[in-house]
């Protein structure tokens, strides 16, 4: 069973990392989690971003957060990527595989995955 001792150990490790954590956090990934998003499958998408960002060691520059309805319910699950000095990127009709792609190509590689953006769906 996962024990409280393990939790204590996590706390100790985190303390050591506080110094390293003065990261820039310059990319924000925001997942729409209102009724429309949740019904369309936002939960696994959000959890995939949370897992991949942590496991790929991107935590110091990327934060993953949740928001309410973005207003384009027909395109849910919707994920917005905000980056300092750049235009917002809106990814639509997301799923777990697309989330993996976005982490790999966009968050890690700096290349917007144009085919998943709202522009690609509307044109």
């Amino acid at each position: 069973m996962k024990s409280l001792e393990e939790l204590q150990a996590i706390k100790m490790r985190m303390k050591d990392r506080v110094v390293l954590r003065e990261g820039t956090n310059d990319i924000r990934v925001v997942v729409g989690m209102a009724t429309c998003g949740i019904a369309a499958g936002a939960r696994p998408v959000l959890n995939e971003f949370v897992r991949d960002v942590a496991e790929e060691g991107l935590s110091s520059k990327v934060t993953v957060s949740q928001t309410g309805c973005i207003g384009i319910c027909q395109y849910e699950p919707v994920v917005e990527v905000f980056e300092a000095g750049k235009e917002k990127v809106t990814y639509v009709k997301m799923d777990v595989d697309k989330a993996k792609d976005v982490v790999e190509k966009h968050l890690k590689g700096g290349q917007v995955v144009t085919e998943y953006t709202i522009g690609a769906y509307q044109s």
Partner: peptide, 19 residues
């Protein structure tokens, strides 16, 4: 959980979430 972690560690930390 918060009592064990204290004030400095957020519950949103991936390791905490995973635990």
């Amino acid at each position: 959980i918060r009592e064990v972690l204290g004030e400095d560690v957020s519950l949103a930390e991936y390791e905490v979430i995973s635990w």
